[in-house]
């Protein structure tokens, strides 16, 4: 049985909105929606799309569900961040919470890089303190600051990096769970 062009167009738009999902998932979702529309058509319903959300809204509900669940299963900060970014399309709050967490992860990465460089550039990298300065990184012959950690910088900066990474990943997981709970209420 064939669906009218408007219904086919609707399915096409939903499929387009499901772009980030795998082929099998997209096919399954579209097959189920097609089956629903065919049933309504067989019942003699005239406007098959009445009562449906806009195709992009319906698609984004699916994408957010799949992305968030998948990210929780993977647990990596990359997957969590990506899922939150997708979910952030309909939640500015999620975006505002995500951005600081991404910054914390970047800071964690920087600490790790400095710790890794310390054995090769012991005089140039570390934790630098001066009258108006306090930073971790490379000192380009600034006499106003001095390095305070010495060789302890390697374990301290590495531990700091791991701690920041762990805390921000935990926070991302909590944010993903919160978004899922929000989605459940929709």
């Amino acid at each position: 049985m064939q669906l009218p062009p408007a219904a086919e167009e609707f399915l096409k738009k939903v499929r387009k909105g499901l772009g980030t999902l795998g082929q099998a998932e997209r096919d399954e979702i579209i097959s189920e929606l097609r089956s629903h529309l065919l049933d309504r058509q067989a019942q003699g319903k005239e406007d098959l799309l009445a009562g449906f959300e806009a195709p992009d809204v319906l698609a984004s509900d699916f994408v957010a569900e799949y992305a968030l669940r998948g990210a929780l299963a993977q647990g990596t900060s990359w997957a969590l961040g990506r899922a939150l970014l997708i979910a952030a399309r309909d939640s500015l709050l999620a975006l505002f919470l995500l951005l600081p967490l991404v910054l914390v992860q970047i800071t964690a990465l920087c600490l790790l890089v400095v710790a890794a460089l310390k054995p090769f550039m012991p005089q140039e990298v570390g934790l630098w303190v001066g009258p108006d300065n306090f930073y971790v990184g490379v000192n380009n012959d600034n006499p106003a600051v001095h390095e305070v950690l010495g060789w302890w910088g390697i374990p301290i900066l590495a531990a700091g990096s791991v701690l920041l990474f762990w805390i921000s990943t935990r926070a991302m997981r909590a944010l993903v769970r919160w978004r899922l709970r929000s989605a459940k209420r929709m």
Binding site: R40, F52, E53, L58, D61, F62
Partner: peptide, 8 residues
């Protein structure tokens, strides 16, 4: 609504 049950 018609479609919202499917994500659920």
């Amino acid at each position: 609504s018609e479609g919202s049950i499917y994500p659920l």
